[in-house]
Design a protein around this nucleic acid. Structure first.
Length: 564
DNA sequence: CTGGCCAATA
């Protein structure tokens, strides 16, 4: 940057031919934008000094200001200015850069306008622009448009395939991501480490351990360069698929570990409830002179919260502040959770009151869960009011409030809340559990019997329910929302999505294969109890990853020690 | 004169 500034000064103090002057300034803009120590404000100032910037200068400034750590719509504004002026004419570089900018700030509307610009200007046949469009729609989670763009590409290269795969991976469409990966190979396109990162992330998201293992073997067999990103993706995949030991092995073998690698490992240990290992990893990380960041502390604090380690949590909170990490909403969430789980609801409430940032619905919801657990009706009502003000259409909030009243035997108030749900016509997010069998991820939604083997699953479920009640279990029916008779409530519990997935697992696999389930919500208490019993009666290890953490059910007990 | 795809988050 220093040398660049010197050259800049020279340019300004000497009389150069105008074309040389413009060219040189454009180069400076390009360098500023590109270099790691780039200064985009400086680049912008230099850009404004160029008498008649050519397309290269415009491209440089558009690309440059989309690469800052605080993304903004600035590059899009530059593009708009360029289009308005009508000169110089934009080229394929311009369009690819501005699409990239739109994908970073998720500017769907602006991106669509750029898309129509692409069509008008005839750059729709540029492979770079095509890929940029696929990426843009993928990042904005408009997967149909992304796929449409992708399908329209006549000859898809590695980057185009990888872009589409990562689009699917991002929104958790694993089967589609993996299907495309196979299709890509059939088309004779050889995947590289970037492709592998995307498919492996898809496995992590869906808990597809077998496919993940297969991909890892593929990487080794085809000598794909296992760089920092790919190793991190593998650590994350093994951790999210329930193989924390394997995750550790991959992590230990990494020659270089950055903040993201350490954070992945720490978050992985945290969701497995290995709180001692989390502490150890954090001190090793500091010893290795890798700076923990906001994500690292989310892992550390959530580990403390989930294991009830209040004093450790407080200790890490102060060390986080000392290390200069600005606490974000997530960190406050962890602390509120930490205090609530330790039954310090009043303290959690004052903690929220004194937060320097305005609490979001998630914070209030954690508090409400805490109030429910502690049967603190007075605080609970206050908290629920705040929450419902902010999020009047989220069924989960009403369910929590209803459960709060149920916990305090306030039946009139409870039925009033349930009536509100009905009157407002709001629907709860349905529970959804998935299980990987033979390289395919099967999804089960609560009470949904559309699976092709529904009949067989129903039989397994009946068998389960008979044997479980034979073992003396009585369904804990107050977890059921709807106004229905006890018998109905019992069968509703029996149709919770994880039960369907477990039944399918029992049907399709044999011991000693572990049944691995991924669930989008938290497991209810009855399902938790029943799964423990199943693990004993059927002598099958069952691993459930819920929205928060892992539960390993072995021979009648769970790794979370019933604290979750 | 420049270029498209990738890792961790309550």
């Amino acid at each position: 940057m220093r040398i660049l500034r010197q050259i800049h000064a020279r340019l300004l103090t000497h009389p150069w031919p105008i074309s040389t002057f413009s060219f040189a300034l454009s180069k400076i803009v390009g360098f500023c934008a590109l270099s790691a120590h780039g200064d985009i404000d400086y680049a912008t100032r230099v850009f404004s000094q160029i008498p008649s910037p050519n397309i290269f200068s415009w491209n440089s400034i558009i690309r440059g200001c989309s690469q800052t750590q605080n993304p903004s719509k600035e590059p899009i504004l530059f593009f708009k200015k360029l289009v308005k002026r009508g000169y110089p004419k934009s080229n394929s570089f311009t369009l690819a850069f501005v699409l990239k900018a739109c994908s970073i700030v998720l500017a769907l509307e602006e991106g669509r306008q750029v898309h129509s610009h692409v069509m008008r200007s005839g750059f729709d046949s540029s492979p770079f622009v095509q890929t940029a469009l696929v990426n843009f729609y993928g990042k904005c989670e408009d997967i149909r448009s992304a796929k449409k763009m992708f399908d329209e590409i006549p000859d898809r290269n590695l980057v185009a395939w990888t872009t589409m795969i990562s689009g699917y991976a991002k929104i958790g469409m694993v089967n589609e991501a993996l299907g495309l990966f196979r299709e890509m190979q059939k088309a004779g396109v050889v995947p590289d480490e970037v492709t592998m990162v995307s498919v492996i992330s898809a496995c992590a998201a869906s808990g597809a351990l077998d496919v993940g293992r297969w991909l890892h073997a593929y990487i080794d067999k085809h000598l794909i360069n296992t760089d920092l990103e790919l190793s991190t993706a593998l650590v994350n995949m093994y951790a999210k698929c329930g193989c924390i030991e394997r995750a550790k092995e991959v992590f230990e073998a990494m020659p270089v570990k950055d903040t993201k690698a350490w954070s992945s490992m720490i978050v992985g240990l945290a969701i497995h409830g290995h709180v001692e290992d989390v502490s150890e990893a954090l001190s090793k990380m500091e010893k290795a002179k890798v700076k923990p960041n906001d994500v690292t502390f989310i892992g550390v604090l959530s580990a403390c919260a989930h294991s009830g380690r209040v004093s450790d949590g407080r200790k890490y909170w102060s060390s986080m502040l000392e290390s200069g990490v600005e606490p974000s909403m997530e960190h406050y969430g962890c602390m509120v959770d930490l205090l609530c789980r330790a039954n310090l609801v009043e303290e959690a409430y004052s903690f929220v009151e004194t937060m320097p940032i305005t609490p979001n619905p998630i914070i209030w919801r954690i508090l409400l869960v805490g109030c429910k657990k502690n049967r603190n009706l007075d605080k609970g009502e206050i908290v629920a009011n705040r929450l419902l003000e902010l999020e009047p259409l989220n069924a989960e909030n009403y369910i929590l409030l209803s459960n709060l009243y149920a916990s305090g035997s306030q039946w009139v108030k409870m039925s009033h809340v349930r009536k509100q749900i009905k009157d407002k016509g709001i629907k709860a997010v349905p529970g959804c559990s998935s299980i990987e069998v033979d390289g395919y991820v099967h999804e089960f939604v609560m009470g949904d019997w559309s699976h092709s083997e529904a009949k067989e699953i129903r039989e397994v479920l009946r068998d389960i329910s008979e044997r479980v009640s034979g073992a003396g279990h009585e369904p804990w029916i107050s977890a059921v929302l709807h106004d229905m008779g006890d018998e109905e409530k019992e069968s509703a519990l029996g149709e919770h999505s994880e039960r369907l997935a477990i039944a399918f697992g029992l049907l399709k696999t044999k011991a000693p294969v572990v049944i691995r389930i991924v669930k989008n919500l938290r497991v209810c208490e009855d399902c938790h109890e029943v799964t423990k019993i199943i693990s004993k009666l059927f002598q099958r290890d069952i691993i459930v990853r819920d929205r928060i953490r892992f539960h390993k059910f072995v021979n009648g007990s769970c790794s979370c020690k019933d604290f979750w």
